[in-house]
Every structure is written in structure tokens, then in C-alpha cells.
Amino acid sequence: MAVLCALCSIGLMVKSAELNIGWIEGKGPGSGAWPFWLSAGMLLVSCLTMYRWFRGITPESRSTELYITRDSLLVVGISAGSILFLLVATHIVGIYFALLLFLLFYLRFVGHHSWLLTVVLMVGIPVFIFCLFEWALKIPLPKSFTEPMFYPIYDLMYS
């Protein structure tokens, strides 16, 4: 991980160096200076972590436990995967239908809850989110091609 962090720091340094990292006469430090030196610091401490790992100073480097066990990979993977699905689906069918599918999957197939509870929450949560954001906060959430389906509700809300 520290190796990744170090690589990331170098990338940031190069990126910052596109701007002026030195001192501009009469104007003060260039706009790239601050991120440049910060990423330089990141590189330094990442190297330090690598060194400490190499020497076996940190507890992580001595632990013989697996980084991620099979069980936790499953639990975490399902969650992360379903959020990924939620985001992708939001781009395709809009957030409300994505929420329906996400909840259906999580409640019914991961949680094994009854169909009644699943359906109630599946409909209830998106409706609550709609009322809170679109109606109360006036923040339209992304709806993609399902947008026209909401026109009748808009008519009701703003008439």
C-alpha cells in the first residue's frame, strides 16, 4: 500500500509541477508550490513506511494474518459491489429506479427479509427521499431517461 501511496505522491508532484512551483518575483509563491511540497512530503513519509515495513517495525508487517479473509471479502464485497451497481444504475435508469433495484437486492437477497418488508421499504425509502430532496430541499436528483415519468408529480408540486 505504501508503494502505491508513494507512486501516487510522485504523480501529484509531477502534476503540481505543471504550474509554477517556484517564487514569482513580486507575486509570491507560484500556485503549484503548495501542493508540490505537500506531495513531496507524502513521498517521503511513504518511503519511511516502506522502510519500516521492510525492517519489520510496524505491527502490520509482522502480522501473518491475511489482509482480507474470505468471509470479510464476501461481506464487504457485496456492499461495495451493490453501491457500485447503484451508481452505475443511476446513470442508466435514474436514481429512483436504481434505488428500487438496490433495495430489492440488499433486503431480499442479502438480508433474506420477508417480501412484505422488502416491498414496503423498497417503495417507502425512494418516496421519502423524493419528498425530502425534490420537494422540501428543491434539489432535483438525476433521473436520466425516466424524467418524463415525473412530469405529473411536478405538475402537482408546482401548480
Binding site: S82, L86, F102, L103, L107, V110, G111
Partner: peptide, 11 residues
Amino acid sequence: PFTILAPTIYI
């Protein structure tokens, strides 16, 4: 149960 809490929080 966590299977109700977790998706609600993610949303």
C-alpha cells in the same frame, strides 16, 4: 438487522 441499516445508510 444490519441488512436494513446498511442499505439505508448507503442511500
